[in-house]
């Protein structure tokens, strides 16, 4: 369904970088314009922060206030534009653009309100900004986010990497093949062990429940940090390297086709570990060679592991056997 709408759309040739940059430029222009128009009427000391009751409780010079706004907008703006241009994460450009619009609005709108509120004030402590303006800011940010979403348009097609070849193994009838290999992530293991130590220390010294939660978290990090990937006549199995039980099994019957290709942990999955993304999931312990299982359901499951082409060949060979009229 998703695939068909995507391919039906013409290629999205919109200048996404410029679209992403626009709200930040607009917010800076709006702040600059308002300041230029009101500079003569602003007090030397501006009220820049307000309590729940709307009274001013923080002050700054106009230059200081504008500098903070400008730095915030430039930092957020360049981060969003760089990510959108580099397509990191690959399918996240639309969300990033929308978030950028909301951020720019949530910074620019209160900035302009603050400047306008200080116009003609003789005493900055008398300036008021009521709390409901916060709700208005949220509404403006949400509306801007929606606008960004619409302007960014659908994700451009073709940024999913092309599937690799679906190799076969030269396996005469009657012969059995099995493939097995381990893959580990040292950073994940280190993180897990540190979390475990922190959990034990906190559990012993401070709060037992907080410690137990940390220990549980540590186990969830450590278990998939080193995994044995087994591929055989039954399907694909993932199990912890050191413990004799299964983390995950995908039986042959759920597989449509298996390929291998290079997988980028950051670009495609936004990190390491058990990852989920629209249309797929996987165990991504590093970037590089990986098995890509296309399931009968249309979803994808990937496992990054060395020599993935051989693993894919074993599974495809058994799929062929299961489909041939003689059976496996």
């Amino acid at each position: 369904m998703k695939r068909s709408t995507r391919s039906a759309l013409p290629a999205n040739n919109r200048p996404r970088g410029w679209i992403a940059a626009f709200p930040f430029v607009a917010a800076i222009a709006a702040l600059g314009g308002v300041y230029a128009a009101t500079a003569g009427r602003l007090p030397t000391r501006l009220a820049t922060h307000f309590g729940d009751d709307g009274r001013a409780d923080g002050y700054d010079s106009a230059q200081g206030f504008l500098t903070v706004c400008l730095v915030l907008l430039l930092v957020f703006g360049s981060a969003v534009v760089v990510c959108v241009q580099l397509r990191v994460p690959a399918q996240g450009g639309r969300w990033l653009t929308a978030a950028g619009y909301a951020t720019a609005a949530a910074t620019g709108y209160p900035g302009v309100l603050t400047l306008l509120g200080n116009v003609d004030a003789t005493d900055a402590s008398a300036v008021r900004l009521s709390l409901w303006q916060l709700a208005v800011t949220f509404a403006v940010a949400a509306a801007a986010g929606g606008l960004g979403w619409l302007l960014a348009g659908a994700e451009p097609p073709g940024d999913r990497p092309a599937p690799g070849a679906a190799p076969r193994l030269d396996l005469p009838a009657g012969m059995t093949a099995g493939w097995s290999r381990t893959v580990s992530s040292t950073p994940l293991a280190v993180l897990g062990v540190l979390t475990l130590c922190a959990g034990v220390a906190i559990g012993a010294l401070a709060d037992v429940i907080a410690g137990a939660v940390l220990v549980l978290g540590a186990i969830l990090i450590i278990l998939p940090a080193s995994v044995r990937v087994t591929v055989d006549r039954r399907g694909l199995t993932l199990s912890p390297t050191l413990l004799p039980f299964r983390l995950h099994r995908i039986p042959l019957g759920r597989l449509a086709e298996v390929t291998s290709r290079r997988i980028s942990a950051g670009k495609e999955f936004g990190g390491w570990g058990y990852r989920f993304r629209p249309g797929g999931s996987g165990l991504v312990l590093r970037s590089g060679d990986g098995i890509v299982l296309r399931l009968v359901s249309g979803r994808e499951f990937v496992v990054t592991v060395d020599d993935a082409a051989t693993a894919a060949a074993v599974l495809n060979t058994y799929l062929d056997r299961a489909r041939s009229p003689q059976g496996g």
């Binding site: 099995g178 044995r228 199990s239």
Partner: peptide, 21 residues
């Protein structure tokens, strides 16, 4: 060269299940 020194082979029980032996 597919397998290097220090690499762990699958547990005998796992491999037996895999190959049906």
């Amino acid at each position: 060269g597919t397998v290097a020194a220090g690499e762990r082979l699958p547990a005998a029980r796992e491999l037996a299940g895999s190959l049906g032996v």
